[in-house]
Design a binder for these strands. Structure first.
Lengths: 173, 173
DNA sequence: AATGCAATTGCAAATCGTTTGCAAATAGAA
DNA sequence: TTCTATTTGCAAACGATTTGCAATTGCATT
């Protein structure tokens, strides 16, 4: 969570000042600049007792170096570029499998198809740029606490939750 | 296990004590016990310059006394019980129309189809009972503020957002 | 009350994202 | 290498929703 680590230099550069600012707000943590450890999907799959096939290896590779939140069709496109024999069904089946063993998260953002993300690192929520579809991850302890509090007051225990902010870049003023 | 129609009384009663309790927490407002003003859909439609047809009148009636968050199929069922000639397409078309003029909100809760709710009263978020599908509305100024703050820090303005808590009733201890 | 016509309807077929049945291919234990 | 249960690609099925079209209807006009 240090703000020196860089991913996507092009994207990071103009925002550096933001992150410097945010770093002071201890309860809001933007997560995009975090260095994400590549998950060892193969080990996870082996542990789940499933076979490591060629299509799966390709898809896992795509996932582990996806810096974005691709949908099934996009994963399929990237997969076909590597091995043209891979089918969309297999992509869907693999996503379901990975989701089942908790290796990825599925997000149903507004409108479009499900988008996927490796399940690494801490929990976080999402801000979706409604103009570009870009997803910015963030984490707020206070919001998490508040959610807990609310559920408790209403007599419920939270199994999971979904917080999505849909917005557009603020005009630099 | 879909949600039946009128379990209001039976379900509300045991919760009354909750609401009494919650009423003290000024920043969390459960909204289920609120007296909801019935919206004048016909006026809204007329204003939007569309015709008040028989199917529309039936659907509007259903919406304005729906205490729950029905999906299109459920609205269709209730509509057919009143006028068997109404079609599902018309339900969908009417929902889209109403959504367009801001008279209802569409919610895409996890898994299932879109569910609808008259757009009356304040903004609120939802807690979905994953066992029954029941929806509990709540409102938290603090969460709203935090969201604003987060978006601001990230350089975005929020256009809208979605906060859904999925949980189950806590075992009464 | 009768007319005219655009708005609206019901129906069936189309669409989108996703899942599934099945026969052929293959991972990986023996 | 052999074996067989698992996995695959394909096409067809799926559930939610939308759409084209010809028939109907609201309603402004006579």
């Amino acid at each position: 969570m240090r703000n020196g680590d860089l991913r996507l230099a092009t994207e990071l550069a103009p925002q550096r000042s933001f992150f410097a600012t945010i770093a002071q707000k201890k309860h809001i943590r933007p997560m995009n600049q975090t260095v994400i450890p590549k998950p060892d999907y193969e080990a996870a799959l082996r542990e789940a007792g499933v076979r490591i096939t060629r299509p799966r290896r390709v898809i896992l590779g795509i996932l582990s170096d996806a810096g974005d939140h691709p949908d099934a069709m996009e994963i399929f496109r990237r997969a076909v570029a590597i091995d043209s024999s891979i089918s969309l069904s297999t992509v869907y089946r693999t996503m379901k499998l990975l989701e089942g063993i908790g290796a990825i998260h599925r997000h149903a953002f507004e409108g479009g198809p499900s988008r996927f993300e490796p399940a690494v690192g801490d929990h976080h929520d999402h801000l979706i740029d409604i103009e570009t579809g870009d997803v910015i991850e963030f984490q707020s302890d206070r919001i998490e606490e508040l959610q807990q509090e609310i559920a408790r007051e209403l007599g419920y225990e939270i199994v999971h939750h979904r917080l999505e902010l849909y917005g557009r870049k603020r005009r630099r003023r």
